[in-house]
């Protein structure tokens, strides 16, 4: 299987030649397969925002290549704009970019830029709205009449409506309350499951990553430091902590239990796993 997105020796330097020169990406090589749900984690300034803006051609590599379906996206400069339709990028606080007088028109902005007919646009808008849970009644409202969480979902629909092959979301739950966070994540999960779209979720929350991602990429200091499944990654708790990233609380409990001498798997990262594991230990004893 060939990768849908691949980077080769990707470098990016900001402010080259000025006193503010800074290397934001240093030899980044990643490969993402079609249908994966990737969690991208790293702390502020680690280069993750710079990386995702390369994947849809908003930033141009200082050195190295970005391949989409095996083709260098900068091979033909005129076609870079088309990559943005195939690799949909939802920025942080996307509700700040809403501008139309109805939610419907705002969601339609992307598809109309792609040059679709009215009926095609309509189909896409309604489909995207359904994925994020925006009702028909809300579609005809002004985006500014919606609640915070609804605005965020409408903005995400604006990208989904382009039917991208890859959907990248930069901290889609930032600033929301627990109910709002869960609503967004379950919508994204549903969308991923139904269409098998490749998803890249950028977040600070280890719990969110643990629950959703099939593979995790950890960045630090402009470089990719680790990639692997949640189980692989969370078994390196010490390294993660030295990068200023904490493993989920439940993993910490299990590391502690193991240190106390209990024979449990330390790479547990969800409550369900934890519950099963403890009950297992108990059963072993009872037998």
């Amino acid at each position: 299987m060939s990768a849908i997105i691949k980077t080769e020796n990707l470098h990016h330097v900001y402010g080259a030649g000025t006193p503010f020169e800074r290397m934001a990406l240093n030899n980044v090589n990643i490969e993402i397969e079609r249908g994966e749900f990737i969690g991208l984690i790293g702390h502020t300034g680690s280069g993750k925002s710079t990386l995702i803006q390369h994947l849809n051609g908003l930033l141009k590599p200082s050195h190295g290549r970005v391949l989409f379906n095996g083709v260098d996206i900068w091979e033909n400069i005129k076609r870079v704009r088309e990559i943005r339709f195939k690799v949909g990028l939802v920025f942080q606080y996307p509700e700040h970019q809403l501008f139309e007088d109805t939610v419907y028109k705002d969601i339609a902005f992307g598809p109309s830029n792609m040059g679709f007919t009215k009926s095609e646009i309509d189909e896409r808008v309604r489909e995207a709205a359904e994925f994020v849970g925006i009702t028909d009644e809300q579609l005809s409202k002004s985006p500014f009449e919606l609640s915070g969480g609804q605005k965020r979902r409408a903005a995400i629909a604006g990208v989904i409506a382009m039917r991208p092959e890859v959907l990248i979301l930069d901290e889609p739950t930032a600033g929301l309350d627990p109910a709002g966070r869960e609503e967004i994540l379950s919508r994204i999960r549903g969308y991923h499951e139904k269409l098998n779209t490749t998803v890249i979720l950028v977040t600070h929350s280890m719990e969110e990553i643990a629950k959703n991602a099939s593979r995790i990429i950890v960045m630090e200091d402009a470089k990719v430091r680790m990639t692997g499944t949640a189980k692989d990654i969370f078994s390196h708790a010490d390294e993660l902590e030295s990068m200023g990233l904490a493993v989920p609380q439940i993993t910490q409990v299990f590391l502690r239990l193991r240190n106390m001498g209990l024979d449990v798997d330390p790479s547990v990262y969800t409550i369900d796993q934890a519950e099963r594991e403890i009950m297992e230990v108990r059963r072993k004893y009872d037998a």
Partner: peptide
Amino acid sequence: KIINAQKARGADFETGSIFKRAKALIP
């Protein structure tokens, strides 16, 4: 930030007639 976000939805701020470019600034 807004320019980049709208570009990610296919907004085009750079080409076209003056009228088209002015209109493109609305987003």
